[in-house]
Design a binder for these strands. Structure first.
Length: 286
DNA sequence: AACTACTCCTGGAGGC
DNA sequence: TGCCTCCAGGAGTAGT
């Protein structure tokens, strides 16, 4: 589930909620979720404090007080919920189970108890998510930063950088390319559909077929969609079925419903094995 | 370089 | 109610 806006929102909320707190309890219910280095035990976390929280692409990074870092990837169905003295203070990621469901859930695989009456639950129905503990100086290596593309929200990703990268991958189709974390880090299936729709570009267009103006439009659309998700709080409510923002998503998941630009029926196709929603009029191939 | 298929899992939705 | 199939917001690997 969680794409860049969801992970970023989680990072921001966790920053307020748990930075400075000490880890006083650790429970790992699904051992394979912990991608341990040789000889590592999850109990190493005990006694360390949360020094800072970062995000890179879809990776969530908890920097700890002893220059190690807890790296978390939620993949498709990871969810994090934090309680403080029995009150839920953070909830984000995949919406199943519901954020207000009793915890721990049977799919809660990792629990951190922190000073100040705080408990963090990591729940993951499909068990694809994972944890790593690495030296903070090795985080980049651990998450594959050399191969990971620029962060989709990063300030260093200027339009001309994006356009240049696009044209280097001229034969690639837009949708699989934008999903490729080595090309651009952070986008997932929903936001790629949203960005392409906002830019009026068909997901099967090749990168090389875009004019410079179209490529710049795509760049702006990606930033706008992500910014909207972050500032309007849709990243959080998007995960819930009954999010109050009826204006978002604008195309993803709206098969059979009218396009909000032109009224044409939104169609669902499969591109690169992923469910893909488009307006056949606003997003033309030719 | 770029595409497809398959893989890790569970659960919800829909058809019968 | 059960049973079946398909699908799911990620991403790595293998084969073409």
């Amino acid at each position: 589930m969680p794409e860049l806006p969801e992970v970023e929102t989680l990072a921001r909320h966790l920053r307020v909620a748990i930075v400075g707190h000490e880890i006083t309890g650790v429970h790992l219910g699904l051992p394979k979720m912990f991608h341990a280095r040789a000889g590592q035990a999850i109990e190493e976390l005990m006694g360390k404090s949360i020094a800072g929280i970062r995000r890179r692409g879809k990776f969530l990074i908890l920097d700890l007080s002893d220059d190690t870092s807890l790296v978390i990837h939620l993949r498709l169905s990871g969810q994090i919920v934090v309680f403080e003295n029995s009150a839920r203070i953070v909830a984000g990621g995949h919406p199943v189970p519901a954020f207000d469901a009793p915890l721990p859930h049977k799919a809660t695989h990792f629990t951190l108890t922190l000073s100040g009456g705080i408990i963090l639950y990591l729940t993951d129905i499909r068990q694809f998510g994972f944890l790593q503990i690495v030296p903070t100086e090795s985080v980049a290596e651990a998450i594959g930063s050399e191969s990971l593309g620029p962060d989709a929200m990063g300030e260093d990703l200027r339009a001309e950088v994006f356009v240049e990268r696009l044209h280097k991958r001229g034969n690639a189709r837009l949708k699989p390319l934008l999903l490729d974390q080595q090309f651009l880090a952070g986008l997932g299936n929903i936001y790629v559909d949203e960005a392409l729709y906002a830019a009026g570009l068909h997901p099967l267009r090749t990168a090389g077929s875009l004019t410079v103006a179209e490529a710049e439009t795509l760049y702006r659309s990606i930033r706008e969609v992500l910014d909207y998700a972050l500032t309007k709080g849709v990243a959080k409510v998007l995960n819930g079925r009954t999010h109050p923002d009826v204006a978002f998503p604008r195309v993803h998941g709206r098969e059979g419903q009218p396009c909000r630009n032109c009224g044409t029926t939104i169609v669902k196709t499969r591109v690169g094995g992923r469910g893909t929603y488009t307006c056949p009029v606003c997003q033309r191939l030719g």
